[in-house]
Design a protein around this nucleic acid. Structure first.
Lengths: 202, 202
DNA sequence: ACCTGAACACCGTTCAAGT
DNA sequence: ACCTGAACACCGTTCAAGT
């Protein structure tokens, strides 16, 4: 066939197809992307840096939904809370992608700029330089830990032998659906309170 | 060859070999396990429920290092803190296994028993039933989020274009090695303080 | 019950050949 | 520059055949 007049493929469409596959089936493969786009497997490699490159594109695509504007809100703790919720919501929109994306951290330029903004906000708020990264990484840990929890199928919490863990069964029963959100909000509240405290008692 | 007088393989040795491979190379495959054990690939399938079964065995093996005894300490918040640190340390002992293990949550019987114990401790401490699971899951999120951070190669934090994020570079520079532990301890302290507060102001 | 050898479907990746 | 077809090494899994 040779080269077409108009390219059949581009990174955008490859990313979209990969994300569709992950949303539908929990995983993707290069051949299945190619098949969906009506193209040979090898063609994909002319646009993308292998399978790992596609994962990186997925990470950037998912993270594009994080609203960096939240970081401009006042005061600083409101900004951090809103950023954390937006960060988490971006991952929640594609739960089946989460195990794929959390394997290595987000280092896309667009997200690093948000980290830079967060550093500045915290310095302006009065945090000592040495506290800034721990504060930010702790927030990232919170978000990603919660994301993993969201990615776990509900069935993971269905206890097969309830008699061995009766109190756990009772405690699970009473939270049912909202366990994930409640845990995140609890951790976030604790985190923010502790940060405020750090600032007031140096 | 046929059946040997003494089995050449068992789940224990398969798990150990898989963990060795993961520690050394960041991943494992059934054929490579077989090769190390001087056996055919197909033989492994007589002892183990496929690749996923081996991952589950890895999860159980790594989690066996969690010290459930910490949950008996007094008072309850000391117990939770010690449990969280032990939980995290178990994962930290095999950082390259973490992405493999965090994809789905720990549901091995031996660990569920610890969750049961944690539920009882929290109920005894006076937490309302509805708060118990959020409190426990938030702790799990904290631990796993931090584990992911530990699994990330140091290089992930080396900024290629420092000028775009100068403050981030400065903040990173000053924490250097200890960023992961500092972030975890910060989040844990905030979490515990918040839990204590929940208990005192219902 | 446990190991082998062979087979199958699928994967990631490369590359010369075409336009 | 971009697509194809063919190739390669590797993977997970199954199964009949042996003891």
């Amino acid at each position: 066939m040779g080269r077409p007049h108009k390219p059949l493929l581009d990174r955008e469409r490859i990313t979209t197809t990969a994300l569709e596959l992950v949303d539908e089936q929990g995983d993707f493969s290069v051949p299945r992307i190619a098949a969906r786009l009506g193209v040979q497997t090898a063609s994909v490699y002319h646009h993308v840096d292998g399978r790992d490159g596609i994962v990186e594109l997925l990470r950037e695509r998912v993270c594009a939904a994080i609203d960096g504007g939240t970081l401009d809100r006042d005061p600083w703790d409101t900004a951090m809370a809103a950023w954390a919720r937006s960060y988490r919501a971006a991952f929640a929109a594609h739960p089946r992608a989460i195990p794929l994306l959390t394997a290595s951290p987000v280092r896309a330029a667009k997200v690093l700029v948000q980290y830079e903004r967060a550093v500045v906000r915290l310095l302006d708020a009065g945090f000592p330089l040495a506290d800034v990264m721990p504060v930010i990484i702790a927030l990232e840990n919170l978000v990603l830990g919660s994301a993993l929890d969201m990615a776990a199928p509900e069935a993971m919490w269905e206890l097969t032998d309830e008699t061995a863990t009766p109190q756990l069964a009772r405690a699970l029963d009473v939270v049912a659906g909202g366990r994930t959100d409640a845990a995140f909000e609890l951790a976030l509240a604790g985190y923010l309170a502790h940060c405020r405290n750090l600032l007031n008692t140096p």
